[in-house]
Computed example of a mutant assay.
Amino acid sequence: MPWQRSADEADADATDTAVDDPQTTEPARKASYTEGKGRPTPKRRDAEKKRGPVAPPPMTRSEARARRKDMRQTMSKDERREERARQRDLRNEIRDRRMAGEEEYLLARDKGPVRRYARNLVDSRRNFAGLFTPIALVFIVLVYGLPRYSMLVTLALLVFVLMVVVDCIYVGRMVGKRVAERYPDSTDGGFKLWWYAASRALQMRRLRVPKPQVERGEAV
């Protein structure tokens, strides 16, 4: 009869129902299918643009100090400790390289072949002016320790200062003359170079920055 179906047709309908049943097919679909994000993956340069502009480097010391203060406020205690240790190591490295005379780490006043040559000239001789600091301290102690002879001590101190001034003038003129001979086209000369050489001669040898690169008496 038309309203009666065969057993094979009933089984086929049951099979179609099982295949099309969403409760049966959903777990299998989720296991084998990854749903899209619904939008394309942005390019790297587009993602970097969305991060916002990068802050320019500080132009002054006060600006750098304020920026470091703001950064420390957002850091944890351990992060601040690590940052201080990193900054300390960096300062030590810069100081060591500056003392060694590496050009890129020197101050602006010490850079250049002319200034290096002037330092070598000063360091290669025994400068009387280098005794100024220790002997001046001795005279000051004698003035207060021996008030009875304060006039003689003061007179001796004045003579000593005069000798130091004469030595500084000699060093400045000598360095200026030697630099003019070796670097005739250099514009780094005159009073500034004289003062640079004299001020280095006034310093004790072990306190000079950068450290002397030549020995006393060595030909330069």
Rank of each mutant, 00 (worst) to 15 (best):
A7F: 06
A12C: 00
A12L: 12
D13T: 03
D13P: 04
D16Q: 07
A18Y: 01
T24N: 07
E26M: 05
T41R: 11
R44K: 08
R44T: 09
E48F: 12
R51M: 14
V54F: 08
P58S: 14
T60H: 02
R67A: 14
D70L: 11
M71R: 15
D78Q: 13
E83H: 15
E83S: 15
R84V: 13
R88I: 08
E93N: 10
E103W: 14
E104Q: 14
L107Y: 14
A108W: 09
D110W: 08
R115K: 13
R116A: 14
A118I: 02
A118T: 01
D123C: 07
R125A: 11
A129F: 05
L131D: 09
A136Q: 11
A136G: 05
L137Y: 05
F139N: 09
F139K: 02
L142V: 03
M151T: 13
V153Q: 05
V164S: 05
G176V: 03
K177A: 13
P184L: 08
D188Y: 15
G189R: 15
G189F: 06
G190K: 11
A197W: 00
A197C: 01
L202G: 06
M204H: 00
M204Q: 12
R205K: 01
R205F: 01
P210M: 12
V214D: 04
R216M: 14
G217S: 07
